[in-house]
Nucleic acid binder design. Structure first.
Lengths: 354, 354
DNA sequence: TTTAGCACTCGGGGAAACGGAGTGCTAAAC
DNA sequence: GTTTAGCACTCCGTTTCCCCGAGTGCTAAA
C-alpha cells in the first residue's frame, strides 16, 4: 500500500497529538488537527490503512490510535519539523555551560543537569577515551616542611594534583632530582609501561627516593585510569515521573533503577559513531528495560582524544522534535567549548582572550 | 497515666513490627511479638492506654495501631537498641571511602552514594565553611610556549589548578615576578579584600602583567567562592520508591522534587550543631514536604575549618536503629578520614605511611 | 471516493455487596 | 484489681456488576 501525502499528514497529526496529550487519538480529532477538509469517516478509512501498514496501533478496539514504534521512526525520519530554540533557551544553555573552575567531570555532570531541565527528561552522559592517554609532564611543589604537591598533566591537557606527605622533609635539590627522574622516565608511557618503568628505576635509586617516585607515579597511574574509565553520569531521573506513561511505578522503577545505578560504570546503550545523533525508539533498544522507552543521544568531542555521549531518555511518546533540536545545539556547544584540540579540556573560553 | 515497663515493651514491639512490615499492628500480633505472657485482650487495654497517651494512632477504627510521631520519638530516645554493624558492612564502608585521586566534592558525593546503598534510603549531604578561607600560596608552572598552570592552595589545604593561556609567551623571570606579586599581595585575604587588592596593584604594574595577575586572582576568588558555597549533593533518590509509603506518586513526587533540586544550593533542613546526630521525625520537620518523613543526620569535620552534614531521608517508619548505627559509623569514618587538622582535606590516608 | 448512519465493542468508573481483621465492651475468672 | 473469653460492631479493601460513552468498522447512499 502506498503512503500517500494525506496518510503522512494524518500520521503526523496523530504522532504530534499523542506526543502532546498521551491520549489515543480518534478519527474526529484527527480530522480537525490534520487540517484536511474531509470527514471523520474518511480519516477512519485512512487510519485503518495506516494500522494495517504497521504505523499505528490500537490499544483496544474501541480506542483511538497511537503511533507504533515504526510510526515514530517514520515520523522522526521524514515528517518531523525542525524545532526552533528560543533566544531564551539558547541563552540559558550558554549561561549554564559557561562555567569557571569546573573540571571535565563536573562540566559534564552539570551539562547533564541543564539538559535534563530544559528537555523535561532524564539525561545520561558518559565519556570515553579514543586513544591512549599519557602523562606529558610532572611538577613538584614544596608546600610545607613535610609535604609537596604533585601536579600531573596529561597529553590531553588534563591537570590533576595531589598533596603528598613526607615525614623526613626534602631539600630543593632532592625535589629537583625527583622531578627530573619523573619527567625523563615516566612520561609518554601507558599505564602498563609506567608500572614496568617503575621496576627498572627501583634498581638504581635509593629506597627513599624510590618510595617518593612510586607514590607520584602511582598517582599518575590513577589519574590515567580515571580518565580511561568510562564514567556515566545521570541527571534528572525524577523527571520520568512527570510523564504519564510512568505513573505506574512498575513501569518507572526498572528504568529508574537502571539509570540510577551508575556504579555499573558502563551504560549498555550502544552509540553508532558514524552519526552524530542517534535515536533509538522503543523496541529498537537492545535492553529490555527500554522496551517502551526512547533514547536520543548525541556525541561531542573533548579535545582530540576523547569523546562524550550525552543522551535523553523518555517514553516512546517523546517530543522528538524538541529534544533533537536541544540536544544537537547542546552537543555542538560542548564540542565548541572543549575547543577541539585548540584548548585543553577543562579550560573555559575566557582563556582565549588574554 | 504512667508508662509502665509493660507499656514500653508493647510500644517497642509495635514500632519494630511496623518498621518491618509497614502494616498496622493488631493486639494479637503484639501479644506474640512482645513476648509477654498475656492475652490479646490485655494488650488491647494497654494499647488503648497508649493511644490515649498519644503514642499510638489508629488509621481507622477497625485497624491495628501504628506509632505516632511522639511514639517514634520515645522509641528513638529510650527504647531503641543498639544496632550492630556486621563485619561485611564496615568493610564495605571502609572500602568505599578509601578513595584515591578524588577531591573533596567527589569524596562527599561518593560517600552519599555508599550510605544510600547500605541504608536503603536517599541521602543528602552538604558542606559548609565555618570560617573564612583564604589562599595560602600560588604556584605558576609554564607548560607550553603559551600557557601556564596556576596552582592555588588554600589555608584549608585544598589545591585547585587552572590552565591559563597567554598569546604572547612569558619568560621565566616574568613568571617569577608574577608569582612573587601574587604570593606577597594576594594571600591571607578574604574574597572582598582580594578584589580591593587587585585595584591597588593595578596602579603600579604594566597592563600586561596586571592582566595575568587578575586572571589568576579571579580564579582564586572563584575557588574560594566555590568552597564557601554550601553545596548539596543527593544520592539514591530513587530508593524512596522502594518503600510502600511512597508507592503513591503523590506522596513521592514532592519529596523527590525537593531532593533532586540541588540547584537550590541550600537544603532548608536545620542542623542542630550542639549534637553530633540529629533526628527529625515527621512533623518535627519544618518543611511541609517532610510531614510524613523523617530525617536522620550527622555532622563530620573536614579539617578544622569546614564541616559536613550527611543525612538520610525516609518515611517516619524508618529503621532508626539501623540507620543511626550506620550513619554514626559513617560520620566517624569521614571525620577520621579528613584527618581533623592533620591532613589536608582531599588527601587519603595512604599519605601517612611514607 | 467520500460521507452519513448505525450497530457493536470494550475499557473505565461508580455503586453495591462481601469478607475479615481488629476493636471495645461486658461479664466472668483469677 | 487485673486478666481473660466472648461477642457484637465497625470499617477498609476488594470484588462484582453494570452502565456509559468514545470510537470503531461496515454498509449503503451521495
Amino acid at each position: 500500500m502506498e503512503l500517500t501525502e494525506r496518510k503522512k499528514r494524518i500520521l503526523r497529526a496523530i504522532v504530534e497529538s499523542y506526543i502532546a496529550t498521551a491520549e489515543p487519538v480518534g478519527s474526529k480529532a484527527v480530522a480537525q488537527l490534520a487540517g484536511l477538509d474531509v470527514s471523520s469517516a474518511t480519516i477512519r478509512n485512512e487510519m485503518a490503512d495506516l494500522t494495517e501498514m504497521g504505523l499505528l496501533e490500537q490499544p483496544h478496539t474501541s480506542a483511538g490510535r497511537i503511533p507504533s514504534a515504526t510510526g515514530y521512526r517514520l515520523y522522526v525520519n521524514e515528517l518531523m519539523g525542525e524545532h526552533q530554540l528560543s533566544m531564551q533557551e539558547t541563552q540559558r544553555i550558554n549561561d549554564a555551560l559557561e562555567m569557571k573552575i569546573e573540571e571535565l567531570d563536573r562540566v559534564i555532570d552539570r551539562a547533564g543537569k541543564v539538559l535534563s531541565k530544559i528537555s523535561d527528561y532524564p539525561v545520561f552522559s558518559m565519556t570515553e577515551v579514543k586513544d591512549i592517554v599519557t602523562v606529558r609532564r610532572y611538577d613538584l611543589l614544596m608546600v610545607e616542611e613535610n609535604a609537596f604537591i604533585a601536579v600531573v598533566m596529561t597529553d590531553t591537557s588534563v591537570v590533576k594534583n595531589k598533596i603528598i606527605r613526607i615525614p623526613d622533609g626534602l631539600s630543593d635539590p632532592q625535589l629537583q632530582m625527583l622531578s627530573t627522574i619523573l619527567n625523563s622516565s615516566f612520561t609518554g608511557l601507558s599505564r602498563e609501561q609506567m608500572a614496568q618503568a617503575l621496576d627498572k628505576v627501583a634498581d638504581h635509586s635509593t629506597p627513599g627516593a624510590f618510595r617518593l617516585i612510586s607514590m607520584v607515579v602511582e598517582f599518575a597511574i590513577e589519574v590515567l585510569g580515571e580518565l580511561r574509565r568510562q564514567t556515566v553520569h545521570t541527571a534528572g531521573i525524577t523527571q520520568l515521573l512527570e510523564h504519564p506513561e510512568y505513573k505506574s511505578l512498575d513501569k518507572a522503577k526498572p528504568l529508574m533503577r537502571f539509570l540510577s545505578d551508575d556504579e555499573t560504570a558502563q551504560l549498555p546503550i550502544p552509540f553508532d559513531g558514524s552519526q552524530n545523533m542517534n535515536i533509538l525508539i522503543g523496541p529498537e533498544n537492545v535492553n529490555e528495560a527500554f522496551r517502551d522507552t526512547s533514547v536520543v543521544m548525541a556525541s561531542y568531542d573533548i579535545g582530540d582524544n576523547m569523546r562524550g555521549v550525552i543522551g535523553v531518555v523518555g517514553p516512546t511518546r517523546m517530543d522528538y522534535a524538541k529534544v533533537t533540536a536541544r540536544l544537537s545545539y547542546f552537543a555542538d556547544s560542548l564540542t565548541r567549548m572543549f575547543g577541539k584540540g585548540e584548548l585543553p579540556a577543562p579550560v573555559d573560553k575566557d582563556d582565549f582572550e588574554t
